[in-house]
Amino acid sequence: MNYIKGIQIVFFIIIGLLVSSLSFLMFHISPLNGLASLIDSGFGSSIALLETLKVTTPLLIMAVGLSVPFTAKFWNIGGQGQLIIGEIAATATGLALSPYLPPPLVITASMGAAFVGGAAWAMPPTIMKIKFGANEIITTLMMNFVAVYLLDYLLIGPMEGSQAKLVHAPASNPIPASDMLPKLVSTVGLSAGIIIALALAGLFYFILNYTNFGYELRVIGESRNAAKYAGIKADRRILESMAISGGIAGIAGMVLVFGTTQILIPQFFSDISTAYGYVGIPVALIASLNPLAIIASSFFLAGILNGAYIMEALYSVPIDVVITIYGTIMLFSMIGVIGDVFKALRRWIK
């Protein structure tokens, strides 16, 4: 039965992809050609695949993190803010410790700092929900904006890099090359972050499906009353799940800086390429929050993102098109999640 549903979801995702490809028409590109070119650019060569894996890394980490509170139907839309704070914490820690400690310790400490930073940033909305019933969708989102401005300020203030000062482009000092995550494929710069990402996916597949913690989150998501009857401390589990989610989002930020960018730059939302906190939402949702399926969905959506960069360069199709595609895929995958779409429709028509 699960397989049938899985196939149904994939089917509707493909339809969503086809529908969203209609937007290519605005650029006088036939939708199917555009789609073919997009997919070819994302998955068509070994270089493209490696580039896609590079983008997959933070995306996969982020989506795995989001799937934890999502399982309890706690909608953490604040992944982006948590990622940014993770980046800040990791970069600051890395830069501060680099002169004194060997690289493995610097990396470990930075990752720890990123986890703590991201988790801490996830706490205010969570506590507001638990204590006052404040809608977490709104509060987590608001925290994103605050994080964006905080980062922006830090990069022209306390964390401003010496190079950046000269050229008046806000950025931090770079992480010393020796403290970066080891590269698996140096030509495209694919870092060991992908291993961390896969390990996290495996770990959380196990946690969500085979532990009391995962079971309890599921019960909370399905029915608060049942959770109470089952003796589940729902507030505590939500708090834990959000700490994990924020922490993992922070790690995604750390991996981004220590695996790819090396420096910290401002992140206004107009730049989708670094908005993994948002992109992670469709990645997690179209995979029905199953961490193993998230490996596939993150790779798939990363490829589209990658392909879209090439489309932008080749045909001036703006990168924004990926958000449209993600939204449409999310919409159609929802239709796939609904048990029997046609039955639902028939019942309604009656």
Binding site: R218, V219, E222, S223, N225, A226, K228, Y229
Partner: peptide, 11 residues
């Protein structure tokens, strides 16, 4: 409350 508390219908 059978369906809301005693069991979780979707599990």
């Amino acid at each position: 409350d059978r369906l809301g508390t005693a069991v979780i219908p979707k599990l």
